[in-house]
Simulated scan of single mutants.
Amino acid sequence: MTDQKGSTVGTGRVFGFRIFRPILAGATLRERLVACLGALIGIALTGLVCGWAFGEGVHIPLIVAPMGASAVLLFAVPASPLAQPWSVIGGNTISAFMGVIAARFVPDPIVAIGVGVALAIAAMSVTRSLHPPGGAAALTALIGGHAATSAGFLFPLFPVCVNSVILVTLGVAFHKLSGRSYPHAPVERPVNDHGTSDLPAALRVGFRDEDVDAALTAMNETLDIDRTDLDRLLRQVELQALVHAHRGLACEDVMSRDVVTIAEGATIEQATAVLLDRNIRTLPVVDGEGRLLGTVGLRELAKRGASRVADAVVGAKTAGRNDPAVGLVGTLTDGRTHAIVVVSVDRLILGVITQTDLLATLARQATLRAIGRNPGPAAA
């Protein structure tokens, strides 16, 4: 059989693991396995802790069903706005309260379940705690049996709120141990470091906030992604497209190889003189074996109390010789970084790429591409 592009695809491949391909952007098999392990540990420990603390009588449910859905979000998509601590704890608890209110004031059970879920959505929206399992928490308060209905307004606190707090606490610990970031903190957008009202260089060209808002309006969809994360994703897509267009250009093709360095034991005066005499802005600092320790500039050298270069050195931005040179655009346009040091595996300096180096190379490549597409009379 053939796929949409006309290429042959094996039947076994189509009906094998391919059908289990995750539909979430960025999802991998490893991420899903980590999510399964996290859910296993989180739900099991939540039940154990509640059973140990409150007993296991039939009149007290150890754990409510919505926790299973909360675990899916918390462990499988921890970056989702719907999976953040306030969404899990607040969404479940507030929704359970809405379910209890509906049960108390709406006599018809069929109408009450609809009212309960509707009130839950409204309350979560107002309190910015939207969490899909909250709808199930509201229903549990309505149709969860005698243990839920007899508890009344205590039910949202225990077991719903207690379950949620324990699950989130375990989620924070699990993600930290597994090297994942939770709670999710959107990366702050670049700011102008020069104290002016201009946008940072990286934000002046390309799409703007109003373009993203207009696109979202045109799509008429609600996306499960933070607004700042969406902006960051789109800018990364732009950068990857640029890298793809210049994929043959490596750092070793662009870098300056005759690198001016200074020893860590040099004085502040010596380093300042090198920067001014050589007309450079970033000076790599090396140890006795010539390995990179960091960099200094005039800003660092002006630091109070520093007498030697070692007192002022800061971490260096580095790259490998075979890394795509265009991939450095984001770093070299952040308003703070003026040069990137190209190093070997053992931190020996191979070269330096400055803003000027990269700009000149990209300008030349753009010119050559334009000439290739639009040959002049001499080339005809």
Rank of each mutant, 00 (worst) to 15 (best):
P190H: 06
C251Y: 08
L275E: 06
I280E: 03
G265E: 08
E31R: 11
P78K: 01
T2I: 03
H246A: 06
G38Y: 02
V326C: 09
V100D: 01
N279F: 07
K317S: 13
P186E: 12
D226C: 05
T272S: 13
T11F: 11
E289S: 15
L332P: 02
G116E: 01
V126N: 04
G372N: 08
S197Q: 08
L239C: 04
L283V: 03
P159I: 00
D287M: 11
V259K: 02
D3L: 00
P109R: 07
R299A: 12
G330P: 00
A271W: 05
Q270K: 13
G116V: 00
A25M: 13
I63P: 02
R13H: 10
F174L: 07
V172I: 15
G297M: 05
G171K: 05
G51C: 09
R13W: 01
G91P: 06
V343L: 09
R247M: 10
L301W: 04
S178C: 13
R30P: 00
L33T: 08
D287I: 13
G91K: 07
G206A: 06
A137H: 07
L40M: 14
A215F: 04
A123K: 09
A25L: 15
D231V: 08
T272I: 13
A214F: 10
V286C: 10
T354L: 15
S344C: 06
A35C: 05
T140A: 11
A79F: 09
Q236V: 09
N322K: 12
R321D: 07
T140F: 00
I23S: 15
G297E: 05
P377M: 04
R232K: 03
I121R: 01
T267L: 11
D211K: 03
S70T: 03
L48P: 02
A141L: 09
P159K: 07
G16R: 10
A71G: 14
I166K: 02
A79Y: 08
I110L: 14
E31Y: 08
T261N: 00
L350T: 09
S95F: 08
A79W: 06
L154M: 12
V115P: 00
V212Y: 08
S129E: 02
P81T: 09
R278N: 09
T282I: 01
A360S: 12
L40I: 11
I280P: 01
T356A: 15
R308Y: 13
L199Q: 07
Q270G: 06
H184W: 14
L73P: 03
I60P: 00
L223F: 14
A151C: 13
D226G: 14
G12C: 02
T361V: 15
L350Y: 10
V285L: 04
L359P: 07
G294V: 00
T217W: 04
